[in-house]
Design a protein around this nucleic acid. Structure first.
Length: 488
RNA sequence: GGGCUAAUAGCUCAGUAGGUAGAGCAACGCCCUUUUAAGGCGUGGGUCGAAGGUUCGAAUCCUUCUUAGCUCACCA
């Protein structure tokens, strides 16, 4: 990318070198940060010397003096330069330092006539000459495409973007801390898998040259984590990237971060308690309260959260009581009456129809946080049946702001039943459902050695971040969201 | 993948009875010793997303393509 402004700046680099200065010196050690300096000076207004480093984001020149705004990782501070103070170096600062350059500033803190705490510079060192000009100072960078593609510019110009990613790191740290304190062990399982399992999703395919075989990027770590539970580690979790070859939207990125955790001798009720306590605790840590605003709505994360059976939820929002419906034809008729498009649900299988009813009539209504419990056994092959009604399983999903944020069950550990359920998935795959699960015979073999009764949980970290950051799009929670390449 | 909308200077944006482009900021030159989006005077800067088409003439009208946003579908 070349422009006349870039060319002028490249010319300046040449001139700076001719002056005997290095436009990209090997090192510089600042000893102070903007925010600390401001705080310290405002406490007793006694002048003191500082040594800062940062980026010039504004510059105002008045002949024999000038003002700059310097931005470092903790914030902005004003720098003042004066010809009598800086002598020959003043001309260098005035002519060769541009908006966007990284500089080091040594000087003394004082207060301007207008009352702003400012550093009176006596030495300015160029640390890195910028060739590309920064976006305009007032409107900044608003073009969404450029903000995502060149996130570094977005972060320079919109510091709150940078802050959000720092918060993300703190949330992840808080989650790990919460689990470490409860004796969970962090494990790592294969991302390159021969049989992608643990979720209903289309996988990405890749290729191993030396083995001359295709491999899949994981869609979930679930089946490996259960192998570890079987192996005897009782409390484990994995936080990491999973990949699903599906559409992109404000709620979906092809790769996203998920935490899955498994606890032996626990069930989905224990997972529910853990979920609400962990998330409430993290939100309290980060936001200072369990009551937060999300996109104009108030969400209360104070425990305990609401629990609602799926059949009850469907009854509440659509008027249909699944337990009173005789067969699928009657359900289809009622679903159409409830407003579902007739052509879309025509011929749909009974429980799939029930699921669609839930998705269409209930999900977006759930502001939450609320646990929806007891999903149809038919649609959840890896969960344990509800002993009081085997048509349903011991499972919950967590809904916040009309979106799914977590999924958990009492893990199915009956190898024979598991095998049957996986075989059903295989036949559905054969009949055209490309999101049905693959058959993983080694996983079944593992269960045949006996897995303890176990509770398992998965939480979408990026979606949780949307809530915490009050972000309308998942892209605001990802430093580098997926983008199509620009054609040359 | 479908629908709707958008793409003009480095950035933010104007620009339709079609007549080969403007502003502010940024840049460059000059003036200016306390500014806060500093100010004043002047200068340079664009294959108007790409390719075709209609026309004497296209940023503007038509077609296709690319990218993005929203939305639907799929899903977490």
């Amino acid at each position: 990318m070349s422009s006349s402004e870039s060319e002028i700046r490249i010319q300046k680099i040449q001139e700076i070198r001719e002056m005997g200065k290095d436009p990209y010196p090997p090192r510089y050690y600042p000893s102070d940060y903007s925010a600390d300096v401001l705080k310290k000076f405002q406490e007793n207004e006694t002048p003191f010397q500082v040594n800062l480093a940062g980026r010039v984001i504004l510059k105002r020149v008045f002949g024999k003096s000038l003002f700059m705004t310097l931005r470092d990782s903790k914030g902005d501070i004003q720098v003042f330069g004066h010809i009598e103070q800086m002598k020959d170096e003043y001309e260098f600062l005035k002519k060769k330092i541009d908006i966007g350059d990284m500089i080091g500033v040594k000087g003394e803190v004082f207060k301007t006539h207008k009352g702003e705490t400012t550093v009176n510079a006596f030495e300015v060192t160029l640390l890195s000459k910028a060739i590309n000009p920064l976006p305009e100072k007032f409107h900044g960078l608003t073009d969404v495409e450029t903000r995502y593609r060149q996130r570094y510019v977005d972060m320079i110009v919109n510091p709150e973007v940078k802050d959000n990613f720092v918060i993300r790191a703190k949330v992840i740290q808080a989650i790990r801390q919460y689990l470490y304190q409860r004796d969970f062990i962090e494990v790592e399982t294969p991302i390159l898998q021969q049989i992608p399992g643990g979720a209903n999703a289309k996988p990405f395919i890749t290729h191993h040259n030396a083995l001359s075989m295709d491999l899949y990027l994981r869609i979930a770590p679930e089946l490996y984590l259960k192998r570890i539970i079987t192996g005897g580690i009782e409390k484990i979790f994995e936080m990491g990237r999973v990949f699903r070859n599906e559409g992109i939207s404000t709620r979906h990125n092809p790769e996203f971060t998920m935490i899955e955790l498994y606890q032996a001798y626990a069930d989905f009720n224990d997972m529910m308690k853990l979920t609400e306590e962990m998330i409430a605790s993290v939100i309290k840590d980060i936001k200072g309260s369990t009551v937060i605003e999300y996109q104009g709505k108030t969400l209360d994360f104070t425990v305990p959260w609401k629990r609602l059976r799926m059949d009850e939820a469907v009854k509440q929002f659509s008027g249909i009581d699944i337990n009173q419906v005789k067969d699928r034809d009657e359900l289809e008729k009622k679903a159409v009456e409830a407003g579902l498009p007739a052509d879309k649900i025509k011929g749909m299988e009974y429980w799939k129809l029930f699921n669609t009813l839930f998705e269409e009539k209930v999900e977006t209504m759930l502001e939450g946080p609320v646990f929806i419990t007891h999903y149809p056994s038919k649609t959840t092959p890896l969960a344990k049946n509800d002993p009081s009604n085997p048509l349903f399983v011991e499972r919950f999903e967590l809904f916040i702001a009309g979106r799914e944020h977590a999924n958990a069950y009492s893990e199915l550990n009956d190898p024979i039943l598991q095998k049957e359920k996986l075989m059903e998935q295989v036949s559905e795959k054969k009949s055209g459902d490309d999101e049905a699960m693959y058959f993983d015979s080694d996983f079944v073999n593992c269960l045949e050695y006996g897995m303890p009764p176990t509770g398992g949980l998965g939480i979408g970290i990026d979606r949780l971040m949307m809530i915490i950051l009050n972000a309308p799009s998942i892209r605001d929670t990802l430093i580098f969201p997926h983008m199509k390449p620009v054609e040359e």
